[in-house]
Design a protein around this nucleic acid. Structure first.
Lengths: 105, 105
DNA sequence: CCCAATTGTTCGATAATCCCGAACTATGGA
DNA sequence: TCCATAGTTCGGGATTATCGAACAATTGGG
């Protein structure tokens, strides 16, 4: 009875991989929602992204070590691995999340 | 008589674009060298990367707004746009540069 | 000035990656 | 059991990355 999806250990987190995962507008938005909402489901109807694409984005985030996935019935709930990220890359996530608007006007 | 290559303005810097540029092992190494050496030339013989590929990596960094290019004869000298990056994304570059080894188990 | 060597960019073809609809799996409810 | 819901996986087409080869630009030597 699997309750969580496997994920890389803290020491295995690779900076380039993490930055690559963050270097996409959709995934960046997902990370922002994780940061504000705490735990979010897989679907994101307001983002105009098909569910197969979303699923791939979540996988990219998970495999990079950014998220942890809890399985509950037929839903998956994602959370940010804030403590792990802070331990491996101090200040990185905070700096990313502190950036306000995409660019300005 | 062109002395510098055009580059995006501070307000036009996009976080996803910057993170994408940083999310590559070779470009990350180039940024590290810029941070430690101040100004570096285009060539990097010790990295096993052909010069056309290196040229593309430098272009990616420049177009993302990470670097400034000064042209001197047949050489180009790249520098990090530290102040601009700090103004637009406070703490981001420092957090990236603070990460020591790739992973080191 | 002419030529050769040096530095780096651009072009083009192959390779790798990404996107997304369709099919599939799994779970829960009627 | 049958159907609806939630997500994953598969396959192909589109996009992007890589890198050798050709090209452009500058410098130094004769």
């Amino acid at each position: 009875m699997v309750r969580t999806t496997p994920k890389p250990a803290v020491d295995d987190l690779d900076l380039a991989t993490v930055l690559h995962a963050l270097g996409d507008p959709v995934r960046l938005e997902l990370v922002r929602r994780l940061a504000t909402d705490g735990e979010v489901g897989c679907g994101a109807p307001d983002l105009c992204v098909p569910k197969s694409t979303l699923s791939n984005h979540w996988r990219t985030l998970r495999e990079a070590g950014l998220t942890s996935t809890r399985i509950d019935g037929r839903n998956r709930w994602m959370t940010l691995r804030r403590a792990d990220l802070e331990a491996r890359f101090p200040g990185l996530l905070d700096a990313v999340l502190a950036v306000s608007a995409p660019a300005g006007h």
